[in-house]
Design a protein around this nucleic acid. Structure first.
Length: 630
DNA sequence: CCTGAGACTTGGAAGAATTTTG
DNA sequence: CAAAATTCTTCCAAGTCTCAGG
């Protein structure tokens, strides 16, 4: 309680202090708004109903006024995460609604009425019918196995072959249903939205140390079929419905303890203030825990995030020493040390993940640095004019392929040859190393250092360097944003953050090209018209003609700018085809670097961070000025 | 040291909402 | 204004890493 008080007082005080600052900021950002935008807003004003607008405005006000600036408070003692935690417990997935009687399941061509539980599981499969998953044998087998377990003995006797099961009518029912939902009237949609807002309002927040904080995932996961990524041995297995009896609640002793749904009990209620989760349950596929935790905008998550970047910044001070040491260790007499040094080199240079061991047969076969196998690399003494080239080809996290050809130092190359000698393709490359050995070593080099810190550090430092190299202060905002995206992209490539090419990519690229061509045409026409106007002015020398010249000049300039913008867009799009920027932006790049860049070059923060991102990075937005250096 | 449990971060895809376009 | 395109949000799987206990 004492702590809480102190926090509150501090908050109040700081609020007053910041009021001035905020005012200034607001003015500034208002001014910075483009005229276009203001105009749009104005034109909207007329149509939109006043009530709505007012409500929105108040909403916005509240947002800025009530924010908890936890980063201005003193830290809690080690290991204690909160002193007060109150919430409503998870929101449970809706119960199964039976199919209407005219929607039937067919076995061997004949309609078959299923028991409720069996029918529910059948709908899981039916819903996925046009997904590639259902064509895979493992998926089908796992599903059928688990499905049969839940059948009545009578059903078990009849349903013996998945190929004889016809789910198409059920499938169609759900397709139609989702179409119908899309086609609802505005009012009906509004009503649905209000209902979900109400649930969000009730279950989506908790009270943490006197502050209302948003929860990240307040709903239990609905039952369904497990979809792993890549070649997952468990794909298609039945994910069971979570019941209150499965759920452990965590909250503070003196808080209002959440009520389980009527007729039910919690598995357990505990009061553990050394952890950050509000509720947990064990998931039946991998037998691991799942948690309900806070939203990234919360203090608990934000503080940790901030701390992560501070650790990475400390690495910056010692990284030269560490690099010198692992280079020296390449020549160590101890095999163990050599392997450690080469692995660390990969982690540092290529931003590979640590690579924990995984239980065989339980998950897809993926690897990281320490778990690389001989079959994952090829050594080329010479390749495409480069020496000592290592060709990596393996599946990493989420079964995303890592493919890279890297020219490495001679000593690394020699070591790799040594590590691979007399081994089978399926043998571990670093047979004397694992993540715990590596991390123990790293911890001894710097407090808080582990393998993943290198990824954070290299990502952030790369962004900072790239921004420095690419940004041209003469550019307009669009040009600067292209530079930002390119810097971001360099990081995403480093971290191997890939996405599948969007389905609409080719088409939208074509459309853009058409637009560019049309704009070029316009520019040419405008040039001709300007010429004509100039000639006319030459002849007549009258004021009207002069004004006309000015007008045409302006038009041309505007068109040229628009063309440039389109070209920038096209470049950006093409370069981004298979790169996913989101993960690095959200998890690896110290937000203060981006914010400092925005401030320095007069780019509004909203251009690089959307609302959610600004909420997550509120701490950074508040504390970073344009001089921030990572 | 090794092992497994536990807690927490990181990841792309899919679905929903919003904006742009024709 | 509807359809298409784009952006944002949700979903939940899959990593990392620490710690307790043998």
């Amino acid at each position: 309680p004492r702590k809480e008080k102190r926090g509150k007082i501090k908050e109040k005080k700081s609020k007053e202090e910041k009021k001035e600052k905020r005012k200034k900021n607001k003015k500034k950002s208002d001014e910075e708004e483009t005229p276009q935008k203001t105009q749009k807003r104005k034109s909207k004003e007329g149509e939109e109903n006043n009530n709505n607008k007012k409500a929105k405005k108040e909403d916005k006000k509240e947002e800025t006024e009530n924010k908890w600036k936890w980063w201005e408070e003193e830290k809690k003692e080690d290991g204690v995460k909160w002193t007060q935690l109150e919430h409503r417990g998870p929101y449970f997935a809706p119960l199964y609604e039976p199919l209407p009687d005219d929607v039937q399941f067919y076995y061997d061509g004949k309609p078959l009425k299923l028991s409720l539980a069996t029918e529910e599981i059948a709908t899981f499969y039916a819903k996925m019918l046009d997904h590639e998953y259902t064509t895979k044998e493992i998926f089908q087998n796992n599903f059928f196995n688990d499905w049969r377990k839940e059948m009545t003995s009578k059903e078990q006797k009849i349903i013996k072959d998945l190929d004889k099961c016809d789910f198409r009518e059920i499938h169609k029912y759900f397709v139609d249903k989702s179409e119908a939902r899309k086609a609802l009237s505005k009012e009906e949609k509004q009503k649905l939205k209000e209902e979900s807002d109400k649930i969000q309002e009730e279950y989506g927040y908790c009270i943490l140390d006197g502050h209302r904080e948003k929860i990240g995932n307040f709903k239990t996961e609905p039952p369904g079929l497990f979809r792993g990524r890549g070649d997952h041995p468990k794909m298609g297995m039945l994910k069971k419905r979570i019941m209150p009896e499965d759920v452990v609640i965590n909250c503070s002793k003196d808080s209002k303890i959440p009520e389980p749904p009527e007729g039910h009990k919690w598995k357990e209620v505990r009061f553990d203030n050394t952890v950050t989760w509000l509720a947990s349950w064990t998931e039946n596929i991998q037998n691991t825990l799942k948690y309900i935790m806070l939203n990234p905008s919360s203090k608990l998550k934000g503080e940790k995030d901030w701390q992560k970047y501070e650790v990475a910044r400390r690495l910056k001070d010692v990284v030269h020493k560490i690099r010198a040491q692992y280079r020296a260790d390449w020549k160590s007499k101890e095999m163990k040390k050599r392997q450690r040094a080469v692995a660390l080199y990969f982690i540092d240079k290529l931003a590979l993940r640590a690579g924990n061991e995984k239980e065989e047969g339980e998950t897809a076969d993926t690897v990281g640095c320490c778990s690389l196998r001989v079959e994952h690399i090829k050594l080329h003494p010479n390749l495409d004019g480069q020496e000592h080239v290592v060709e990596f080809d393996f599946l990493g996290k989420d079964s995303i392929r890592y493919y890279n050809k890297v020219s490495v130092e001679k000593m690394v190359f020699k070591n790799l040859q040594l590590f691979m000698k007399n081994k089978n393709p399926a043998d571990d490359l670093f047979d004397r190393l694992n993540t715990s050995i590596l991390n123990r070593h790293l911890q001894s080099l710097m407090d808080g250092l582990s393998a993943k810190v290198f990824r954070t550090y290299n990502a952030s430092i790369t962004l900072q360097e790239q921004l420095k190299a690419l940004t041209n202060s003469e550019d307009n905002v669009a040009g600067k944003l292209l530079s930002y995206n390119r810097a971001n992209r360099a990081v995403a490539i480093l971290c191997n953050h890939q996405r599948s090419t969007p389905k609409t990519f080719e088409k939208s690229m074509q459309n853009l090209q058409i637009k560019i061509d049309a704009k070029k045409q316009q520019v040419e026409e405008a040039q001709q018209e300007l010429k004509k106007a100039e000639d006319e002015f030459e002849d007549t020398k009258d004021a009207k003609a002069e004004a006309n010249v000015e007008k045409k000049k302006k038009l041309l300039k505007r068109l040229e700018e628009q063309l440039a913008k389109l070209n920038v867009q096209a470049t950006d799009k093409e370069e981004n085809k298979q790169i996913a920027l989101g993960t690095s932006k959200l998890n690896y790049l110290d937000p203060r670097i981006s914010i400092a860049w925005c401030k320095k070059f007069g780019v509004p923060i909203e251009k690089i961070y959307n609302k959610t991102q600004r909420e997550k990075f509120a701490w950074a937005i508040d504390m970073a000025d344009e001089d921030f250096e990572f």
